[in-house]
Amino acid sequence: MKTRATASGLCGNGRGSAMDSSANGSASTRVLYVLFYALLLLFAVFYLLPFWGALTTSLKQAREVAITNPLAFPSSPTFSPYLEAFAQLKRPLLNSVLITVGGTLGSVFLGSICGYAFAKYRFRYDNLIFTLLVSAIFLPYQAILVPLFQTIRALGLYNTIPGLILVHTAYGIPMCALMFRGFYGDVPDCLIKQAMMDGNGPWRIYTKIVLPSTKIATVTVLVFQFTSIWNEMLFGLIIGGPDSMPATIALNNMMGTLAAEWNVQMAGSMWLALPVLILYIAMGKYLIRGYMAGAVTAS
């Protein structure tokens, strides 16, 4: 419940802001406003400066990078670093798309089933099982990397895309289950009871009632998982190889080989950031809701 309260608070349904009801317009209030805006702008510069430098550099020729100020926008912007970076990242970006789509669908579907069961059904040891499930969110992956590496090799999935999909699915389930349990808790029990009395089984109730009435929740978790898996690097490094390397690993390898060509590296970073940026701009509301639901683990 708490998840929803905070999430909706951010989305504008909560209480208003501190100054809404206070008397505006006095001189001291105006001074405060100017001060606040100045601070906000200062912080905006702090958060955006690295991106600006990356953008300007990614639009320059290699020789231009060496002689111009990195913050100056190029006099004649070029897209050639983007083409060069894409040529090198093409295959890893495709791998990333496959891994991310597979891992997202797998973890969201399985996490959703868990969330549904733990939100709406009581069974033996349900609290204990749920606690164990959610505690897995806090697992430091270093404590299971060796067994994971051995398991994936034994399954013949080392250096394969299905291997990475499997791993992302497994480690994504706990967070998805937690988020879904919160969202499904808001589906009225009477709806489910009514459907049960009409002779529907849990699976039909899940597909005909719970899923259709929680579309926003599904989108939220999908967006959250997509960005998490897309951004991930450790598993790609451990069980990915030349044939299944995600773009995160490929970008990092580029750094090792092209130490001087910052423009290509920055363009590569932009390629890697692009899907997340698109989601952030198009579905920022859902992403933020996901961050808040993810944060509720501890509050």
Partner: peptide
């Protein structure tokens, strides 16, 4: 402003690590 402040958190550590290497 909130969206701008949150932007770094949304991106991969690989992206931000690469950008900060240039920073």
């Amino acid at each position: 402003f909130r969206n701008l402040f949150l932007l770094p958190f949304a991106l991969s550590f690989v992206v931000t690590g690469t950008i900060w290497a240039w920073m």
